[in-house]
Design a protein around this nucleic acid. Structure first.
Lengths: 234, 234
DNA sequence: CCTCTGCCCGTTGTATACATGTGGCTTGGC
DNA sequence: GCCAAGCCACATGTATACAACGGGCAGAGG
């Protein structure tokens, strides 16, 4: 559905700041479609968490504070932590573990000799895959569903800060820490250590929080390049 | 919206078993409305988690296994645990703490002299309120939103098993345990003990899991009286 | 007999006209 | 001058007709 992607893109690129009320008629002419699919699109974006429904009908662009972004990242950490714990406690198949280890190896290959030598595009892709497979290994469609939901807010996604920061050497070096957490996470799951797996996953999400903090307070220009950060208001 | 409540009720009462595909036209004549509001209603029920969207359009009634129900309860525990932890870590106002303690006292008043003497209706109402306020005290609208979402599945709600089991004395006695957890939870939050608060909340949700287990394996007749349990298939 | 292709029917997607409701503004009365 | 009530305009809710898409079945050809 073209209109869905188009409106989503417009919201994520800041065309409609948080709190903006979206009217069916004006959106209909903007998107060159009739009101019916506009309603459909807004309904789906509300499901995604980008829009809020008003009490007496209508939609507004959801507005996020810095604290909301912090909490959304915390939420992702908690949910991924739960997935990791369930995977460890309930056990995973050899095939599943192999799959995770294969991705781990791919991530490993992204690092070069120098501490700040990282192939970011390949890393980003493998990292996204790692997080998806990790959650699948929980064996719970209920948890998987909610992780995917929490991840749909772009600034809460595991890949959120992996773009647009390639120039910061300190950031590239910090990926070594993240990768160590990936390794440890796999070890914890393989060893059926639920609590360990859970808290490593939580701590892993804290990297995103730290990056968010940096973007907001140290280098506000980044807020324009990291996907979704334009949604932050106050 | 009458149609929304009507369809929700029909699904929750098992008129459309999990996996049933809902067609716009037939539903439209059943509910005596046109296709447009039917689409709207189905969209909202998909948001609630009662329906699943099909890839090429259309909706089916979401189907839950016993394992899904267990995981949904686990999810609620994890989210309420996070709310409790945040409340403890970040601190709550005196007014907030007072409010929680007032509800705690109301719950206390529901217990009589005998171990199985409990005013169930009053308890159920105060219990629901307790869980709502607890989550509010987290101070996080993001977390609150997700707890409310997780709670919308009727069998995962904190009040799910408080109806239709009044006749089981052992069940009424088990409420003493729940109430002790309520007390301890408040103590942990007041004392800024985040980890303690989190795990008490998780353990608290386990009571629901135990009740689910009982209903499914020991007393299947209960599945007809506990709201939402008819949604369970295999 | 098996397979591939094309048609047909059922379902959802879209447009549009009409109904309904709500909030704001204006006017009249106290 | 202020408050209240009613009206008007703009927004969403609903109905319905038409379009487009997809899956299944049947018929024909290899």
């Amino acid at each position: 559905m073209r209109a869905l992607m188009e409106l989503r893109k417009k919201i994520l690129s800041g065309d409609y700041p948080g709190g903006t009320r979206l009217f069916e008629v004006s959106l209909a002419e903007t998107l060159q479609i009739s009101r019916t699919p506009v309603r459909e699109v807004m309904s789906r974006l509300a499901e995604e968490g980008l829009l809020d429904r008003l009490a007496n009908g209508g939609f507004v662009v959801r507005s996020f504070t810095y604290a909301d972004a912090v909490d959304a990242i915390e939420l992702r950490g908690v949910l991924e932590g739960t997935a990791a714990r369930l995977a460890a406690e309930r056990g995973v198949s050899q095939a599943g573990l192999d799959q995770l280890r294969e991705i781990l190896a791919r991530l490993e290959d992204c690092f070069g000799e120098a501490a700040d030598d990282v192939e970011l595009e390949a890393y980003s892709e493998a990292n996204a895959k790692f997080h998806v497979v990790l959650v699948e290994l929980s064996g719970s469609t209920v948890i998987q569903r909610e992780v995917e939901r929490a991840t749909r807010l772009p600034f809460a996604s595991p890949s959120a800060f992996l773009s647009g920061r390639a120039h910061v050497a300190a950031f590239r070096q910090s990926l070594h820490i993240a990768q160590e957490q990936h390794r440890t996470l796999v070890s914890a799951i393989a060893g059926r250590e639920g609590a360990r797996a859970e808290f490593i996953a939580r701590e892993h999400a804290r990297i995103a929080r730290k990056n968010l903090e940096y973007a907001v307070f140290e280098d506000p220009e980044l807020m324009l390049t990291v996907p979704g950060l334009v949604l932050l208001n106050s």
